[in-house]
Amino acid sequence: MRLIFAALAGGLFGAGLLVSGMTDTQKVQGWLDVFGDWDPTLAFVMGGAIIPMAIAWFATTRRAAPVLGGTFPSRPPQVIDNGLILGSTLFGMGWALAGLCPGPALASISWTGGAGLVFLITMAAGMFAAPQVRARLDMYWGMA
């Protein structure tokens, strides 16, 4: 059952990314192009996504546990550490360069061909290296 609902969520997420236009790198780069031909679509996508999600978070306060058992994710300590700042900055730069973030990069791989595959491979390499990068930065900055 867990696998079925994980697949349903992943599939609906992917379909939503396609319908919303967020698998089109031009629309994402258009959102970031505030001094050019600015494209506000991403704000509507984000707004539309936040509505059901906010209701779901509210529902977690009224339910003891998820339908399939386990526990709801606890609220992590809300610390703005160097990892969040540096990581988000690097992510934003990569996002601007190609117009892809992790969800759309996966969702669009069926039609992005070799370039899409290159993006996925280097993204995976970055994700693989991240714990090492974090450990190194911890030594100098105390990122934890």
Partner: peptide
């Protein structure tokens, strides 16, 4: 380069 930045950045963040 974009993929690398997105991969490292999202996991650090």
């Amino acid at each position: 380069i974009a993929g690398l930045l997105v991969g490292v950045g999202t996991r650090l963040a």
